[in-house]
């Protein structure tokens, strides 16, 4: 077998990202990494994730597996760099209408969700149920990088632990990585393979 050693390319790199008072000099993710970003509200954590998902205009270079974001079609980039906002939005009547194929019952069970809720009007679901379904909705695109904005913000302890386990499981199975915004110090300690802080729009490695 002929194995040539390739020069190593990180999964996601960010250089000199700037956008409306936001400054992120450098960030690098390898497959399996979880970069925890913490900092006071209003510091720019959400803006960072929005810029990475290319939802807001920004300058600087972001690359996925060495490929610059501008060389992706915008929708293709967003499929591969999947953003989960704090608040989920829905445009079909029931939650199930947002899935190409409905999530498997085992997956739902792991997140303590009942398959019945897929048929219920979205407005009747609790914010915790919506948050977990939004994660599953995002994962069906099989993104290589997850941008998670307080994904356990409206969950109780048990559900939060299940979401953490599900994300870890996903990252491992898909050789993906995540940037995870969290206020919860215990969660940061539990999950972080890299830690960043965001203060007054500045992202710094810790």
């Amino acid at each position: 077998m002929n194995v040539t050693k390739k020069s190593h390319v990180p999964l996601l790199t960010l250089e000199n990202l700037r956008h409306e008072g936001l400054e992120a000099a450098a960030l690098e993710l390898e497959a399996g990494d979880i970069a925890l970003v913490s900092g006071p509200s209003g510091a720019g954590k959400t803006r960072l994730l929005r810029a990475l998902a290319d939802l807001d205009a920004h300058s600087g270079d972001v690359s996925l597996e060495g490929r610059h974001y501008l060389s992706f079609k915008p929708w293709d980039w967003r499929r591969q760099v999947g953003f989960l906002p704090t608040e989920s939005h829905w445009w079909r009547k029931d939650a199930g209408g947002h899935f190409d194929t409905p999530p498997q019952s085992e997956t739902l069970k792991r997140l303590k969700l009942d398959a019945v809720i897929l048929k219920r009007p979205v407005g009747q679901l609790s914010s915790g149920e919506r948050q977990r379904l939004a994660l599953l909705r995002l994962l069906q695109n099989a993104p290589k990088v997850l941008l998670l904005d307080e994904p356990t913000g409206s969950l109780d302890g048990d559900s939060a632990a299940r979401v953490e386990a599900e994300v870890k499981r996903y990252l491992k199975a898909n050789r993906a990585a995540a940037i995870w915004v969290s206020h919860d110090e215990a969660q940061v300690k539990r999950l972080a393979s890299r830690r960043y802080s965001m203060r007054e729009g500045k992202l710094e490695r810790q």
């Binding site: 939802l55 915008p74 499929r79 906002p85 445009w91 995002l138 695109n141």
Partner: peptide, 22 residues
Amino acid sequence: DQRGAIEARLILGQPWREAISD
């Protein structure tokens, strides 16, 4: 009014045409 829903569709990888189609 529906900024959130339009952006949710963009985030999930829909091209702009589809995200605003309805």
